[in-house]
Structure formats: structure tokens, C-alpha cells
């Protein structure tokens, strides 16, 4: 997630070193520069090699299905007919669902932790939050199977189905396992990431800016609204991108609760399948070159989608983080 990390770094906006830095320099400086440049190049090369290898591996499928692969809705290993749309749909919808739930909650939590909570409460809660981010995803998955899915079915989906069953989102049989469970478990998993990064970003806003607002007779909320959030906004978007990255790539927990059926349905009750899940589930038992190659192409697609969404988010950061002229001198 190199992209998001840069997004976070924008908060402090380090100014470019003068070109002189690249000119005559001490021996130590030159060695240091070479070293770090090699590391940076290494990261880029790995990325390029990865893309190349994946493209090679998916060559067969690329040749056979062409661009139609992306929009194909069938996934039938027996008849060797493969299309990626259900997985694309599953990945995008479950991640979007996750952000929809997680962003407001985690921003709220971050505001509480950074601005409102009494001092003695901040570090214990912050610590628990970070602990939450460190739980292995398979544990989340188990919890999803044994607790979340049955609970969703009995306490959420049944009443919803009764009251709003007419809506396409809530049609069909409540079964617990499905898109709703997938989105929810992703939301729970990205929440600590977004919340703890957002908290750090808000803590980094200078005290003086809070005091400036308070001294003008702003309430706590007005201070957050008019001073802290605007100053932290690019970092906050960075935090959300970080969460999105985690949601897009998450495999295990989602696989365990989303139902794993390659279908496209508007209903949140119905099972779905994500790109990461289908690769993890089927790669080991994929018989036949075309099958393997199609899975590789799904991987390539996931790679592309992640890059694309990151780029879009980056653009978004750039747009909303644009300050009045000259703000960078701060």
C-alpha cells in the first residue's frame, strides 16, 4: 500500500530538497543515496516483475476469452467457460459495503479518542483498537461462522425481510452467510485500521490550531469540525484508502462467510464470491491449463482493480487536500 502511505505523509508536506542535494555531495551522502535508490528501484522492479509474471500466467485465458473475460458471468470449470464479473462484483460490493459501515464509525471513534476522551482513557482504548487490527483474519472468519452469520440471520435479516422484503436489497431467504456477512466482517476488520490511523493523523494537528478555534468561542465539536478535520483531511483520506486496500485484498475471513457462489444478485442476503476468495479456494484443485490460467487472470484483475482504486483515491486526496494558495509554506 505504498500509495496510501504517501497520502499519509502529505500531512506534513516535506518540502523537496534543493537540487544542490543531488549535485556535489559528501562520500557518505553519495553512498547513502545509492543505497536508498537501490531499495526504491527494487520495490519498483518487484512490482513490474509481478505484473509481467501474472500476465504470462494468464496468457492462455487472455487469448481464449479476450476482454470478454471481465464481463463474463459464467464460471464453469467443467465446460471450461470462465468469466470474472461475479468475482469483480463480489469484491467491489463487499468492500464498498465495508467502507460504508466502517468509515463513519471509525472516524467517530478516532474523534472521540483524539479529541474528547479523558486522558486516562485514551491509551487503553487506543491500545485495544490496535490489538483489534492485529487479530489474524482466520479468527475473524471463525467468529463470523459461529457468531456473526447466525446472529445476522436471526436478528437482522429475518426482521428486515419481514419489513422490507419488497426491496431488492433485502429479498430472498435470510441465510446468514452471504454478501451482508461478507461486508460486515470486512467492516469490522478495517475499522481498527482506519480508526487508529485517523487518530494518529488527528493527533498530529498542532495544538495551536485547536486553541485558535477554542479561543474564538468554538465548542469542542466546532473545533473538530472547523479546525481539526480540515487540517487532517488528506491524512484521513489516506487512512480510508488504507482500509480499502485491506478490504479489497482480504481473503480468509470473507471466504468463510460470504457463501462462495459465483452469482450476481442485488440482494444482500444472497451469497457472493470475491476475487481473492476464488483464487484461494480453487487454485490448488484447478485441473487444466485454462482453469489455472483463468484464475491467474482473476489475480491480474484484482491487481488492476487495486491499482485503479488506489489511483482514484489518490486523485481524490489531491482534489480535496488542495488548500488555498500558498498553504504549503505552513
Amino acid at each position: 500500500m505504498a500509495v496510501s502511505v504517501t497520502a499519509l505523509g502529505r500531512l506534513s508536506l516535506p518540502r523537496r530538497l534543493a537540487p544542490a542535494f543531488w549535485g556535489e555531495a559528501h562520500l557518505g551522502d553519495r553512498a547513502f543515496r545509492l543505497c536508498t535508490a537501490a531499495f526504491a528501484a527494487g520495490a519498483l522492479l518487484t512490482l513490474a516483475a509481478l505484473a509481467l509474471q501474472m500476465t504470462r500466467a494468464s496468457a492462455l485465458s487472455l487469448r481464449r476469452f479476450g476482454p470478454g473475460f471481465v464481463l463474463g458471468t459464467e464460471w464453469d470449470p467443467v465446460r471450461e467457460s470462465f468469466g470474472a464479473l461475479p468475482f469483480l462484483f463480489g469484491t467491489v460490493v463487499s468492500s464498498a459495503l465495508a467502507l460504508l459501515i466502517a468509515v463513519p464509525v471509525s472516524l467517530g471513534a478516532a474523534i472521540f479518542l483524539s479529541e474528547l476522551a479523558p486522558g486516562w482513557l485514551r491509551s487503553p482504548i487506543g491500545f485495544l483498537l490496535e490489538l483489534l487490527a492485529a487479530i489474524p483474519s482466520v479468527v475473524y472468519g471463525l467468529w463470523g461462522i459461529f457468531v456473526l452469520a447466525p446472529w445476522l440471520r436471526d436478528t437482522v435479516q429475518r426482521p428486515l425481510s419481514g419489513a422490507l422484503g419488497g426491496l431488492p436489497f433485502f429479498s430472498g431467504t435470510p441465510r446468514g452467510f452471504g454478501m451482508m456477512a461478507g461486508g460486515l466482517i470486512l467492516a469490522i476488520m478495517v475499522l481498527p485500521t482506519i480508526a487508529s490511523v485517523s487518530r494518529e493523523v488527528m493527533r498530529a494537528v498542532p495544538v495551536g490550531l485547536r486553541e485558535a478555534a477554542l479561543a474564538l468561542g468554538a465548542t469542542r465539536w466546532e473545533t473538530v469540525r472547523h479546525s481539526v478535520l480540515p487540517s487532517a483531511r488528506s491524512g484521513l483520506v489516506g487512512a480510508i484508502i488504507l482500509g480499502l486496500g485491506r478490504a479489497l485484498g482480504e481473503t480468509m475471513a470473507v471466504t468463510m462467510v460470504i457463501g462462495n457462489r459465483a452469482e450476481i444478485s442485488a440482494s444482500l442476503f444472497e451469497p457472493g464470491y470475491t476475487m481473492a476468495s476464488v483464487i484461494a479456494n480453487e487454485f490448488t484443485e484447478a485441473a487444466g491449463d485454462l482453469y489455472l490460467s483463468s484464475l491467474a487472470e482473476i489475480g491480474l484483475l484484482l491487481f488492476g482493480v487495486t491499482l485503479l482504486l488506489n489511483a482514484l483515491a489518490r486523485l481524490l486526496v489531491w482534489r480535496i487536500a488542495r488548500l488555498p494558495d500558498g498553504a504549503r509554506r505552513a
Partner: peptide, 19 residues
Amino acid sequence: VQVRRRVGMVFQKPNPFPT
């Protein structure tokens, strides 16, 4: 909050809102 609206303050370190 009401007190601060009546008693204004200019801080030792200038703190304009950069955004």
C-alpha cells in the same frame, strides 16, 4: 465558550488556520 467569546486572545505563537 461564552467566556472566550467575550474575552478574546492573541496567542504568543501565531496560529492562523492553514486550511
